[in-house]
Every structure is written in structure tokens, then in C-alpha cells.
């Protein structure tokens, strides 16, 4: 599943980063590589940025970047991240991007400038897990 589809509080393991060019490279530099484990700590309201803990540090990521990261949800608590409190119980499940379906640009809510769909970031064909 995509990182952007995961719930708040979800532990995950990265399967692949499917964002080409500098952005994918930057994410790899920041530790978003295959096998890295983390947790979604919280998400901003109205599809605001995600707060992610990965490799023992915290990072903010927009959901459009998170949509390019393929993760495996973990239900066994990984060592090191199990004690992270989680915020947004009331918010759970509110930011799904179409339940497990394909990424559809039209379904991303109110967007004016700066939407990720005109960046061509996700122009690659891809398959789900």
C-alpha cells in the first residue's frame, strides 16, 4: 500500500520509493530506503503534511510525496518505535485516498496551486503490492 493511504499510528516497512529524479533521491538520502521501518505519528488537517518517524528521527512529508512510497504495513511492533505515542485517533481513516484503489488525481480534494499532479512526478507506470 502507499504511505499516503496508511493510517495514523501505522507502523510500516518501506518496499520501494517510486518517485523518480531528485525527489526520490532526496528521500533516499533522508533514509527512505527499502527495508527502513517507521511510523506515521500524525497527519495535518485537510490533507496537510504527514509527521513520520523513521530511522530514529522525525520528518515532515507532504502526502503527494508519501503517495510515491510503497510500504508494507507492520502489525508486529518493530523494536525502537513501539513506544511512540500517536495522535489523531479521532482523525483515523479520514485521509484515505480511495480505499486501496489507484491513485486518482481528481480525488485529492481542494487544490489550487502546487498540486502534485502537474509535476509529472508519478508519470511512471506502477503496480501495487
Amino acid at each position: 500500500m502507499r504511505l499516503s493511504e496508511a493510517r495514523v499510528g501505522q507502523d510500516f516497512e518501506i518496499v520501494a520509493v517510486r518517485i523518480p529524479r531528485e525527489v526520490g533521491r532526496r528521500l533516499a538520502d533522508m533514509g527512505f530506503t527499502e527495508g527502513a521501518r517507521g511510523r506515521i505519528v500524525r497527519g495535518g488537517a485537510f490533507r496537510g503534511p504527514l509527521h513520520i518517524r523513521i530511522r530514529d528521527y522525525d520528518v515532515l512529508l507532504r502526502r503527494c510525496e508519501a503517495a510515491g512510497i510503497e510500504v508494507l504495513p507492520l502489525y508486529i511492533e518493530p523494536a525502537g518505535v513501539s513506544e511512540i505515542p500517536v495522535q489523531g485517533a479521532s482523525f483515523r481513516g479520514r485521509h484515505r485516498n480511495g480505499a486501496g484503489g489507484r491513485w486518482r488525481p481528481g480525488h485529492r480534494g481542494w487544490r489550487l496551486g502546487g498540486a502534485c499532479r502537474d509535476s509529472g512526478v508519478f508519470s511512471r507506470p506502477e503496480g501495487g503490492v
Binding site: 525527489v23 533522508m30 528521527y57 522525525d58 512529508l61 510525496e65 496551486g113 509535476s119
Partner: peptide, 23 residues
């Protein structure tokens, strides 16, 4: 004004938001 410029002279890729959150 940013919106106006964004759709005219400052087109181009939106940069990603990958920001470390220090304690």
C-alpha cells in the same frame, strides 16, 4: 499574488516538502 505568479512567471515543479522535525 503568489497564486497569480505561480500560474504565470513562476511556473515549474513544486518542490517537495521533506523537512526534519528536530526535538
Amino acid at each position: 499574488s503568489s497564486l497569480l505568479l505561480h500560474s504565470t512567471v513562476l511556473r515549474g515543479e513544486p518542490t517537495p516538502f521533506v523537512l526534519e522535525l528536530p526535538p
